[in-house]
Design a protein around this nucleic acid. Structure first.
Lengths: 100, 100
DNA sequence: TCATCAATTAGACGCTTATCTAATTATCAA
DNA sequence: TTGATAATTAGATAAGCGTCTAATTGATGA
């Protein structure tokens, strides 16, 4: 476990808070995030596609938004991509909201 | 204290989750919410205006978004409006994110 | 009553974004 | 090598949103 996760010490910039809030504001991305988060193992991109009526291009766009926000980590093997929820970042976001 | 607050039993609909996420996705509304939340007493609308370079119309629009999302409660006295953060709703939202 | 002030509403403008198809890049297997 | 497949990128389109000014509504006080 990383030091950040152990200590709960992730400090989000205001910019990242904004990116996360925007990422969560789209219902489709919320679904994607839930699916990715429903399993601790990396979720394959193709598996995600199979569960949603969505074009590959649109899915790619959404995954990039989630990645840019820091909410998911992507791992690539050959031509396949898989995604993992970064729970520590999501937690840092909810913690931040709690300080309001 | 209401039963909902006491029990932490607020159940947000998917629709409200979406409204809250959208409400939080705008930096200006985030600022407004922080200001309102910084005091337990209701925050006067005019006091908010004094702190932001914003037109009355735009402020009114943002406050309506926050109210529609259920994040603030509005109280009116004569021609004045005041806002209070609904912490239980915000808490319900962060709790929901935590279930992802 | 009437002028003033707080707030909302109406309408317009420009920017952002969600979505698609088509084209491209990269990988794998026959 | 070549054809098929996974994913990304480019470009277009339509809808949504933040912002403003102007007009309106509603309350206050002289």
């Amino acid at each position: 476990m990383s030091a950040a996760k152990r200590a709960g010490a992730i400090r989000l910039s205001e910019e990242q808070v904004h990116l996360i809030a925007k990422a969560l504001a789209d219902p489709r991305r919320m679904e994607l995030l839930r699916q990715i988060g429903s399993c601790t193992d990396p979720t394959q991109c193709t598996a995600i596609r199979d569960c949603h009526s969505i074009s590959a291009a649109t899915l790619s766009h959404h995954m990039k938004e989630l990645e840019t926000a820091g909410l998911v980590m992507v791992t690539r093997e050959g031509k396949f991509a898989s995604y993992t929820l970064k729970r520590d970042v999501l937690r840092a976001y909810t913690d931040r909201l709690g300080t309001i």
